[in-house]
C-alpha cells in the first residue's frame, strides 16, 4: 500500500515549475520517454520528517477553466483527485498574471501553498514582494523560493509538514463577485452541496455552472456515477 501524501504542483507555463519539481524530487521520478519539458503528468517522490510525499507536476496552464486539454488535466486533478496539498508556483517577475491562476486554485481547494519562484531573479531586478501581506490577504501560506538555487526550501518543506500535521490551517479568502453573481451563487450552492456531499467545493461548482462549463458537467456526471458504485463497496469494510 502507498500511504504517501500527495502534493500537486500547478502554475503558469515558464514559472520554473518543472525546475522546482526536479529540485525537490531529484532523480526519484518517473516521466515519459522524453527528457524535455512536461508533456504529460510527471510524478516524483520526496521524504521529509519521516513522511513520504508524492509530487505531481501538473501541466503548466494560464487558467483552470478547461480551455485546453492541459487545463482540463490540471483542473481534474486538483478538483477530483483531491491532493493533500496543492502547490501553486508563481513567477516573481510576473506576479499579476500568476496570481490570477492562484486565485482560481484558492476557489477550488483548501490546502494551498503559494510558492513565489524565481525570487532571486526578481530581487535582482529590484522587485520587492511582501509575502506576509499576501499571506494575510489570501489566507494561505505564501513562500518565496528560488528553485534554481534551492533558496527557501527549508521553509517550504516545513510549511508542507505543518499543514499535514495540522499545525497550521489554510483558510483561503474567497474572491467576492458583484451582488448579482453572489446572489446567484448563494441560490445554487446549497443545491450543489446536497447533490454531491463529498464533491468539489460547492462555491466553485456554482461559479462554473454559471460560467456554462459544459466539460465540467460531463466530468462530474461521470465521476458521480463512479462514486455511487464505490459507496456500495465501501459498506463492506
Amino acid at each position: 500500500m502507498n500511504n504517501a501524501y500527495r502534493i500537486a504542483l500547478a502554475g503558469n507555463p515558464n514559472t520554473g515549475k518543472s525546475t522546482l519539481f526536479n529540485a525537490l524530487t531529484g532523480l526519484r521520478q518517473h516521466t515519459g520517454n522524453w527528457a524535455g519539458k512536461t508533456v504529460s503528468v510527471a510524478q516524483g517522490s520526496l521524504q521529509h520528517k519521516g513522511n513520504h510525499y508524492d509530487l505531481i507536476d501538473l501541466p503548466g496552464t494560464y487558467s483552470l477553466f478547461s480551455n485546453s486539454a492541459d487545463e482540463t488535466v490540471a483542473r481534474n486533478y486538483i478538483v477530483f483527485e483531491k491532493p493533500d496539498i496543492t502547490l501553486v508556483v508563481l513567477d516573481a517577475t510576473s506576479m499579476e498574471r500568476n496570481l490570477n491562476l492562484a486565485l482560481q486554485v484558492l476557489e477550488m481547494t483548501k490546502n494551498v501553498i503559494i510558492c513565489i519562484n524565481l525570487i532571486d531573479a526578481a530581487e535582482k531586478q529590484g522587485i520587492k514582494i511582501n509575502e506576509h501581506l499576501l499571506t494575510r490577504q489570501l489566507g494561505v501560506p505564501v513562500i518565496k523560493v528560488s528553485a534554481r538555487n534551492k533558496l527557501g526550501f527549508p521553509k517550504l518543506l516545513d510549511t508542507i509538514d505543518r499543514i499535514i500535521t495540522r499545525a497550521i490551517e489554510c483558510n483561503p479568502v474567497p474572491t467576492i463577485y458583484d451582488e448579482e453573481i453572489e446572489e446567484k451563487i448563494s441560490r445554487l450552492e446549497p443545491k450543489v452541496k446536497e447533490l454531491w456531499k463529498d464533491g468539489p467545493s460547492s462555491r466553485w461548482v456554482s461559479l462554473r455552472l454559471l460560467d456554462g462549463d459544459e466539460d465540467l458537467m460531463r466530468e462530474m456526471e461521470k465521476r458521480m456515477g463512479r462514486e455511487e458504485n464505490d459507496e456500495s463497496s465501501r459498506v463492506m469494510d
Binding site: 506576479m95 499579476e96 496570481l99 522587485i127 514582494i129 511582501n130 509575502e131 499576501l134 490577504q137 489570501l138
Partner: peptide
C-alpha cells in the same frame, strides 16, 4: 494584491 504587496523598481 500586487499594488499592495509587490514593489516594482
Amino acid at each position: 494584491l500586487c499594488a499592495a504587496g509587490v514593489k516594482y523598481p
